[in-house]
Design a protein around this nucleic acid. Sequence first.
DNA 1: ACTTACGGTAAGTAAATGCTTACCAATAAC
DNA 2: GTTATTGGTAAGCATTTACTTACCGTAAGT
Lengths: 109, 109
Amino acid sequence: MQTAENYDQAFNALGDPTRRAIFEKLQQGPLSVVHIADGLPVSRPAVSQHLKVLKEAKLISIQQQGTRSICELNKEGILAMRNYLDKFWDDALEAFKALAEKEERLDNN
Amino acid sequence: MQTAENYDQAFNALGDPTRRAIFEKLQQGPLSVVHIADGLPVSRPAVSQHLKVLKEAKLISIQQQGTRSICELNKEGILAMRNYLDKFWDDALEAFKALAEKEERLDNN
DNA sequence: ACTTACGGTAAGTAAATGCTTACCAATAAC
DNA sequence: GTTATTGGTAAGCATTTACTTACCGTAAGT
């Protein structure tokens, strides 16, 4: 259950608009599969397939309750992506600071 | 030049492993197209196409220097993704805090 | 002027992807 | 026990996507 390094699957998962829609629906709280499929413009089996991808990307978790599959956000995948981006964010910030200073120097000439 | 809401393209862009590789290469600093293509297992035209996607997702910016196209990270797209994730992160954190407390109570029984 | 380096674009192709319908198994409700 | 709900899976299909080679234009180096 390592906390990171699955951002690979995670970015791929959120690259699809339907999956992002599902992801966003779950932001309000746990939902069953039919509930998730309810407002969406795709069939329930399509949703099932998307849920599988999101689950393997550790962006959601699914627990069985009788015949229902209750889905909810999984912070692990979200954290992995955030960590990945933070690295770039920090580095980019450094780079831009340096660049800004350089340009400032140039502007003053 | 609004700062956000292009995470749609951004997630899609980083969903591809080759594009992530390019993105990561640029973390160390600006590079020309041929330099980017150098270590990668795909052809230069393929890189060109990927760069276009990354540029439109505002994850990189490209400036012309003679015949060279110098690419560098663009903090705009990175920030947009971070902001998007932060919303989920905060919400998920709330949800998990509540869950953790509930489970703690159950564990103590 | 000629040649070399750089890189964007077009056309074609093979593989991946997102979707559908059809089907089936399992639990819940009556 | 029978019927409805829930949802996973398989097969097939259409589109998208990531790649290739071929080509062309432009700027630099000689």
